[in-house]
Amino acid sequence: MAFEAPSLTLKYGSGREASAEGREALLKGRLAELQLPTAADVHEKYPAFVDASSIFVSGSLIWGWAHANSDLDLYVISKEPFVAGPGMETFERHVSTADPLIWITLGEFGPFRTDIEIWREEQVDEIIDRFAKGVPNQEVPDIGMSEHDMLHRLVSGAPIAGDDWFAARRDAIRAGSFGSWLAESKKLDAEGFLEDVAGLLASGDEHAAVIAAREAFNRSLTGLLALYGEYGVSPKWNFKRVLSAQPAEISKDEAWELITMKGCYEQPGAWAEHAAAVATRLLIAVEEKTA
C-alpha cells in the first residue's frame, strides 16, 4: 500500500504559515514599514463591503505598538444587515443591542492575518447613545467586551472609508460619558480588591495580598487612564498607555515598578501595602475628577 500524505483544507487563511519559509516571509513583512489596505483593496477582496458606511482599522498596528505576530483589526459599518459574499467564511457574535447579531470574518491583507468585525450603524449608535452627554454614570447598563472594544477602537482607530461617519461617532464618544463611566467602573472593582488586601495582610497571607494588590493597582490605573482618553483595558498595554497619556498622578518610573511588581518577591507584604497605597491615591484622583 502506497503512503499518501494527509491533505488539509483550510477554512481560514492561505496556509502560508504552514512552512518555515512562509513563516519567515510573513515575519519580514510584518516587521517592514506598515502598509495599510486601502478602501479599494478592501472592496476588491470583499465586494460585499462596497456600500459600507465606514471602514476603519484599529489596534496595535495603528497605535505603533505592533509586534511580530500582530493581527490587523478591521471594522466594517453598514446600514443594512450584512449578507456574506461568495467565498466569505463568517461566524456570528451576539452583543447587547436591540439587533444582537454582528458578524466576524477572518482573512488576510499582505502579511497580516485580519479580523474583520461587521456592525450595523444602528448598533453602534445605540451603544454610543448609552453614554450620551448628561446621562448619569450609574444609570448606564454594563456592557460586554465586544461593545467596549467597539467604542475603544472607534476612538483610537483610523478610517480608510467613510471618514465623515467615523469622525462624527468618534467625537460623540469623546464628548459623552464613556470615559467617566469606565473610570467609575474600574474604581468600584479596585475598591473590592483593596478590601481584600487589607483583610489578607491582617490575616498574615502576604502572598495572596500581593495578587489582590496587583489587581487593585491595575484597575485603578485603567480607571485613571480612561479619564485621559485611554479606553483600553488589556493589562499588557498599561505601560504604553501611561507613556501615551502621561498622567500627572503617577510617573512612568513609578508605574513601571508597580506594573513589573518590583520587589514583591523579596518583601511581599511591604509591596502589597505600597501598591495598595498607590492604588488608593489614584482612586482618590478618579473620584475628584468625576465628582
Rank of each mutant, 00 (worst) to 15 (best):
M1E: 09
T114G: 07
A208W: 08
A167S: 12
N137H: 06
D149W: 03
L283S: 10
L101P: 06
L26S: 11
A39Y: 00
A68F: 06
V155D: 07
W256Q: 09
V83E: 12
W103G: 07
F217E: 11
S180K: 09
A52L: 05
T105V: 06
G162S: 05
Y12G: 02
F178K: 08
K186L: 07
S7G: 14
P81A: 14
D171M: 11
A20R: 11
W237Q: 01
E126C: 06
G232N: 05
M261E: 14
K79I: 03
Q267L: 05
L8C: 10
I143D: 01
S78E: 13
H43L: 03
I173R: 01
A52T: 01
A285V: 08
F217L: 13
E89P: 03
E215D: 13
A172N: 01
D129H: 11
N238Y: 06
A277N: 12
L74A: 06
I116F: 07
L27S: 13
D163M: 09
A172I: 02
H94I: 09
A39S: 12
E139K: 11
G162H: 05
R23T: 08
P86I: 13
D253W: 02
D196F: 10
P247I: 04
P268L: 03
A291M: 10
E117L: 15
V233M: 12
